[in-house]
């Protein structure tokens, strides 16, 4: 903080009591976040205990409803599976890509950074349209390739694990750029001397990766893990656009389920979806802190 009380201006006036001006600067943001984040959150908590139409206090019955909805629990299973596989792949691949960018010659590393990030601009609707073009089982690229090779075309949106693969791969295509750039920045901030010392000791490629690169990327890994996990557990757009939650709710995610339940109008009371959204809040907060603590304690053991 600047020691402004000691600063005397040329005209002899002193900078005094200007600190209270700070309130003015933060006011718009505080106001907006209060109206559009804090109030809705408080309302969500209150409404989850009330009936949507009458406003009567109904205790825990909204939570009871959502926990008894088999589809909701199933959707949690789906999203946890997709998130675990997706986050693991995202971390692993962005680590490899960042290594590649680092080791490539100047021109190529520049091109790689830009091209890998490019898909991040594409909206999920457009992703689903491109996906359709590639995977449609009647006349899509992959189906045509399989027909040419005289194989039975896979129906990507339905068969076996392919619906999951479709969502995870689309998500990777969209998101790898960002995590690669963050991983790369982490790698570049590791002092060169560490690598030079390792080279003198004659350490091999894998030893360098496991003993120097990875431990020094601890904070980057924690950051990516928690942001990626938070993001993927809230997956909505991609399942909605690509598989529509199907087949037979196999790729339905909790947020997609709640979004549908809320818009449905006819079926469940609306406050049930609000109660459900608070469960997601608790799950995400818990998992985030678990991931954080796990990595932290693991580090201190190593040290």
């Amino acid at each position: 903080m600047i020691k402004e009380r000691s600063v005397t201006q040329k005209n002899g006036r002193k900078y005094r009591n200007q600190d209270n001006l700070g309130y003015l600067y933060v006011l718009p943001a505080v106001l907006m976040l209060t109206v559009f984040a804090c109030i809705p959150l408080v309302m969500a908590v209150l409404r989850s205990f009330r009936d949507y139409n009458t406003g009567d206090w109904v205790g825990l019955s909204n939570f009871d409803y959502i926990f008894k909805a088999p589809v909701f629990l199933q959707s949690f299973g789906n999203v946890i599976g997709m998130a675990v596989v997706g986050v693991a792949l995202q971390l692993f691949l962005s680590f490899l890509l960042a290594q590649l960018v680092k080791k490539s010659t100047r021109g190529f590393s520049g091109a790689l950074k830009v091209i890998v990030y490019l898909p991040s601009l594409v909206s999920s609707v457009i992703v689903s349209i491109i996906y359709h073009l590639l995977t449609n089982h009647r006349g899509g690229l992959f189906a045509n390739l399989m027909i040419i090779a005289d194989l039975d075309p896979i129906v990507f949106g339905v068969d076996g694990i392919w619906p999951y693969v479709s969502i995870i791969v689309s998500d990777l295509w969209l998101g790898l750029g960002g995590s690669t750039l963050i991983m790369l920045a982490g790698m570049l901030s590791i002092p060169r001397e560490y690598y030079e010392a390792a080279a003198i000791d004659g350490a091999g490629v894998f030893r360098v990766i496991f003993n120097i690169t990875m431990p020094n990327l601890k904070n980057t890994f924690i950051f990516l893990l928690s942001t990626q996990l938070t993001g993927k557990l809230q997956m909505l757009d991609l399942p909605l656009m690509i598989t529509g939650g199907g087949p037979a709710n196999k790729t339905l995610t909790p947020v997609l389920y709640l979004y549908r339940l809320f818009n449905d109008g006819s079926g469940a009371p609306r406050n049930v979806s609000i109660a459900g959204s608070l469960i997601i809040l608790v799950v995400i907060a818990t998992l985030n802190s678990l991931a954080f603590f796990f990595l932290q304690s693991k580090k201190s053991e190593d040290a």
């Binding site: 933060v26 804090c38 809705p40 959150l41 309302m43 557990l233 809320f262 959204s277 997601i280 907060a285």
Partner: peptide
């Protein structure tokens, strides 16, 4: 200052769905 800052940062960890549905009412 720190209280206000922490208050704002708190919303970084609130998932969108938990506020989106009631935001419609707001």
């Amino acid at each position: 200052k720190n209280v206000i800052f922490t208050y704002l940062l708190f919303f970084m960890f609130v998932p969108g769905i938990a506020i989106q549905l009631t935001s419609i009412k707001v």
